[in-house]
């Protein structure tokens, strides 16, 4: 268990969650000026839109080892229901993301949209990491943060596209965040992981 936590770099995950909350409290209200076409209310994008990427990066790093290295062969068991690795990973992911999101929502004052943003980016990154590798996972989340930030306020369905922004529909954003996390957790449990059989190394048992 301790070795598994070390393999998942649990220390880094905790540090990332704390860094996220600290930065959100300290600099979350810093605004980036954008043309009036974009932005939340008056042509600004708040930095806290992008801060959950810290947690997302930690998640991508934590689950990079899955399917590679020493865990590749044991991870096969994860294709069978309720394997040890899958259940532990899904548990860590869900509780960690919920805790990080809760801290952002409560301690940092991010509210529902803060929680939704953390869940959304964590889920997307985790699913992307499992299906296509950590770099692709974090790239998908970065693009989501970027494109939703500059999606014009007067464009169709802007309230629903602004998943990570305060002017988005909170219930919808939270629903999407939870759904994305559940999909990622499902991928972890069922072990449908990306294994580079031919390009990289696989581990053993």
């Amino acid at each position: 268990m301790i070795l598994w936590l070390r393999a998942r770099r649990a220390g880094w995950l905790a540090a990332a969650a704390l860094a996220l909350v600290a930065l959100d409290r300290a600099a979350g209200e810093l605004s980036l000026s954008v043309p009036a076409l974009f932005g939340t209310t008056s042509g600004v994008v708040f930095l806290d839109t992008f801060l959950p990427l810290i947690w997302a990066a930690a998640i991508a790093d934590a689950f990079t080892g899955r399917g590679l290295g020493t865990e590749a062969r044991p991870a096969l068991l994860a294709r069978l229901p309720a394997s040890r690795l899958g259940v532990h990973d899904a548990g860590l992911f869900l509780t960690g993301s919920a805790a990080a999101g809760g801290l952002v929502a409560g301690v940092a004052g991010g509210g529902v949209h803060g929680l939704a943003a953390v869940l959304m980016l964590a889920g997307l990154t985790c699913a992307g990491t499992l299906r296509a590798g950590p770099a692709a996972g974090i790239f998908a989340s970065t693009l989501l943060a970027l494109l939703t930030s500059v999606y014009p306020r007067n464009a169709p369905a802007a309230r629903f596209v602004h998943l990570l922004q305060p002017d988005g529909e909170p219930a919808w954003a939270l629903g999407c965040g939870i759904a994305t996390c559940l999909v990622a957790a499902g991928l972890l449990v069922t072990g449908r992981v990306h294994v580079r059989l031919y390009a990289t190394d696989v581990g053993a048992l």
Partner: peptide, 15 residues
Amino acid sequence: PAVVAVPLAAVGWFA
């Protein structure tokens, strides 16, 4: 590492 480089580069330029 890529998980740091990708968001850092993007958010840095946006900022």
